[in-house]
Design a protein around this nucleic acid. Sequence first.
DNA 1: TGCTTTCCATCATATCAGGTGATAGTTTTG
DNA 2: CAAAACTATCACCTGATATGATGGAAAGCA
Lengths: 299, 299
Amino acid sequence: MISSLSLDQLRVLVAIADAGSFSAAGRNLRRVQSAISQTVATLEATQEVTLFDRSGHRPQLTDTGRILVQQARMVLASAARFEAVAAGSRQGMEAELALAIDPLVPTAPLIGSLRALHETHPQLQISFSTEGLGGALRRLRAGDVSLALCLLLPDAPEDVTATPLIRINLLPVTAADHPLATLGRPATRVDLETHIQLVLSDPANRHGPNYGLTGSAPWRFVDLGRRMDFLLAGFGWCRMPEHLVKEHLDAGRLVRLTLDDDTRGNTDPLTIYAAHLADRVPGPAGRWLLSNLAARVAD
Amino acid sequence: MISSLSLDQLRVLVAIADAGSFSAAGRNLRRVQSAISQTVATLEATQEVTLFDRSGHRPQLTDTGRILVQQARMVLASAARFEAVAAGSRQGMEAELALAIDPLVPTAPLIGSLRALHETHPQLQISFSTEGLGGALRRLRAGDVSLALCLLLPDAPEDVTATPLIRINLLPVTAADHPLATLGRPATRVDLETHIQLVLSDPANRHGPNYGLTGSAPWRFVDLGRRMDFLLAGFGWCRMPEHLVKEHLDAGRLVRLTLDDDTRGNTDPLTIYAAHLADRVPGPAGRWLLSNLAARVAD
DNA sequence: TGCTTTCCATCATATCAGGTGATAGTTTTG
DNA sequence: CAAAACTATCACCTGATATGATGGAAAGCA
């Protein structure tokens, strides 16, 4: 046998440390004292350590023994976590919750909900991925994640079930020193097409549809942060979620564009959906997260 | 039995995950395949979980099973730490190393040595205490710590064995705007006695000897940092370790006092000793730390 | 397709770790 | 000094578990 150490030996050791004597530990564990004595003896023999100092009346933990009791508590704690995970999945709890979210999803409420989820279900492993636009849906379809927070444009697929979660306003904006900012009248399609549009695009699908594409000279970005850098630097215009540009608008670094009727078609609020595969319903933890998140964004 | 989970079950579970099949795991563990099969069955029964999907040819880990394998690895890792501690103490290694240091001991080399000690003996628990002057020696005598880095003034006690470790220069200093700083001649005993001396004193022994006490109006401090604050604020003068005031001297915030022959008696370098009780010799880790520290301060 | 190999579940049997109960010795308590 | 509490040791026995054999199913191979 590679190692003869057993959890039972550790349980006995900790019980002795807690109870204060071999006999008391035996009573707590419902074993006779001799069994305790013997377990300690074999533990000491197999590990070749002296756990108790027998010179006095009742055995006293040695220095080594005290440290090993601490170690034993840690082992038992991790064993308890093992059993907690088992108990969780026994009640139908998924063993892990894998999430994917699209870049446009606001992270503030998500962070709060994830923290609350971890506190409620400490043994649940949570994994999280965010990639370019469309990545969340792709990971959902690939089976990598069980829950996606994503857009469903241009069309709602058949194989996923989605519930609306948040609506975010997209505002056409540009830098304060950009020509479009000083136009003095609503921008027409021609105005827009003569300037660079900074678009988010699905990196895996470069020639597919680009949500909100109007102009003809798009620069393509995968992540919002980098697009924001270019936007602030005055390289072009784009539609941005209201909550991300509010501060810049207030500070005057960005300005909101007014569009004429012709180009206003796709300025509807964008809806973020919580989606899962139709044949793979989220477990209790996933549903808990969704309801918590829904309550949080309702504020 | 409170919990029937055993380390052996976890070893088997992990072995299967590593080997890829029950049979291969059995070969690795030198048990027949039926023993593996049975262990898995009882683990699944007692925890009431399904670890393997038996629908295919060879059992495949379920989602829950995968997570539980991860958990099992963590339990086994902590069990391995338990055994590492036991193995360490089997070789005479102390189970924990408790240190106490006096405030004047320079911390820079100590931090380096402690980090190296932790890398060399990861399973060793290191505890560390620093209190007022004399506190290290007191904790050593009380048996709280096995090793003290401390002064041995005014006299070397009989019951401890000490080896010199570092000599630190004590410089009489005061703030640049203090009257003593602009004296223009070596300070006499009378000069010093008319000004406040900022002394470190043993908080447990307020009326005992105060190392380096010259003046008659001492302000007593327990920690060096606070004393430094008062020193810089121009409240008085004191002797400080060279390495702590070098920067302030260079910057002109503090100035070194020159003393006349009469008061120069106790300006000898102060020796920091590594001390242990004569009847309680440090183990390998303590000796390792001392030699590493000695090499470090030799630079 | 047919043969061989590999794999797993099940069962009866054997074995051994470990729990039980009794006893003796020691220290503490009153 | 007696009673109580505690531990070590021993013989004994129980039960968990490893073994070995068997059967069936899937996969590899010619």
